[in-house]
Nucleic acid binder design. Structure first.
Lengths: 247, 247
DNA sequence: CGCCCCATTGAGACGGCTCAACTTGCGTGG
DNA sequence: CCACGCAAGTTGAGCCGTCTCAATGGGGCG
């Protein structure tokens, strides 16, 4: 179970022993493109905690904003709750991805954050990150870039929700997940979805029935193979085309 | 025509004479909550240019990212173009609002930006703003906050597109515009829409016909009065309720 | 074994889209 | 000054994709 690379490993989610320097996500995550000695400074402010169980909340909308988080293992969703109880999932986060930016403005978290699987996260106290960003220009730059990327992703999502039909939306999600898996050197064609049909439907503005029917249709057309949460992408090219299907 | 407050005024869009210190948008815009001497430092890197005509582009997606922009007068829209030519308006920007954040990540602008009316903008070269942010902690903080706010706005927009019906979407846009007008001490109940029905439909994921019918219905129910682009909000409370109408 | 939850599938309803006709306002040119 | 064309908006009729409601299937767990 213990990782031979890490000399103080205590469990298979690797929290106590972790450091950015030997983290295999450092090429994706916050330390991207930083000097070794700067990574050590960043490392010293990062806190790693015990794993979060699936269904457990990391924090909720309205709580005082203190930290941003990097996903270390597992998977996480963020969601809004409207005045009258309508929920909207605003994103799924996989290892190496960073969340919590939406709390900076009001000093309260804007989203609810819950683990989909058993997950571990790195907590980065924002005020210390801010101080460090004043001292390390590449960190400040990188932080701006991460927020900018989130804005771009949201813009793409607006287009998806506004212009695409059910097939286009589902295909777009699958391609996005596939790309994010392959960035982590995992297979781009075989994946286990971390979220339920309910979550997919909520995220994409569809009912679970429509999501289910769409999966079935894509399977019948031999573009994907689906077995519950296991998805195989058979025909990547056609799936890419379907991403652009409009209403 | 010339503004008596500004001693070198040359036109009613006020570009050459402008400075943050005497700008009546400073309470909304980038200088928010900055010291006077820091505002002067910010001011010194900001460039003001000639007015942009309605329909004229400020920049296009793919061009090299150099600056962010604050709207000084008029109104501006940003939009994406998909691989196969589908356009999605990603935002409308009114005086005091800031755009261009989406270019930081890739060092290319992500959106196309075009003026809806004759407009003026303040151009803020990003690399100089970055340098200044390292020296002025409140500026760095404020910059983070502005990007965070954009992320939060986008999340709200995802909810709107994913969960609301046509009435809910149109009402949400009207309330948003109303709030932004009143922040500028303008009437929250009487406004002239800067964008066409086409733009509204594109932004909200509806056809122009549906937008038009929705305006007509809201008018028949005496919630608003519409005359082309002139809109009066008659019953603010009911319009607020309609914002939450789901599919 | 039986219960519950999640997913799938089918049948019918409905909101928004498509297509088309008509109106209105505005700029151009006779 | 009016005639004309053009762009933008409104309104109506019919269609289609997704939702709603309901029944069924399958896997995990007490």
């Amino acid at each position: 179970m213990s990782n031979p690379v890490l000399n103080t490993a205590t469990c298979n989610h690797g929290f106590i022993e972790a450091s950015c320097t030997n983290c295999n996500l450092k090429g994706l995550c916050l330390p991207l493109a930083m000097d070794i000695k700067d990574i050590d400074r960043l490392d010293s402010i990062i806190q790693r905690s015990r794993p979060i169980q699936g269904g457990e909340h990391l924090y909720r909308a309205g709580e005082k904003f203190t930290s941003i988080y990097a996903v270390r293992s597992g998977s996480i969703k963020t969601y809004l709750i409207d005045d009258d109880g309508i929920e909207q999932i605003t994103g799924f986060y996989l290892p190496g991805e960073i969340l919590g930016f939406d709390g900076i403005d009001t000093n309260e978290y804007g989203c609810n954050v819950v683990a989909l699987d058993t997950s571990t996260v790195c907590e980065i106290p924002f005020h210390r990150l801010e101080e460090l960003s004043l001292q390390i220009p590449t960190l400040q730059r990188h932080f701006f870039q991460l927020m900018s990327r989130q804005i771009e992703n949201n813009h793409q999502m607006l287009l998806t929700l506004s212009k695409k039909n059910a097939e286009g939306r589902v295909a777009t999600l699958l391609i996005s997940l596939s790309q994010r898996y392959s960035r982590r050197k995992l297979s781009p064609n075989a994946m286990r979805l971390p979220m339920s049909r309910m979550d997919i439907g909520n995220f994409l503005g569809l009912t679970i029935e429509t999501v289910s029917r769409t999966f079935s249709r894509l399977q019948k057309e031999k573009i994907i193979e689906v077995d519950g949460r296991e998805v195989l992408i058979i025909d990547h090219d056609r799936l890419n085309e379907i991403c652009h299907k409009t209403r």
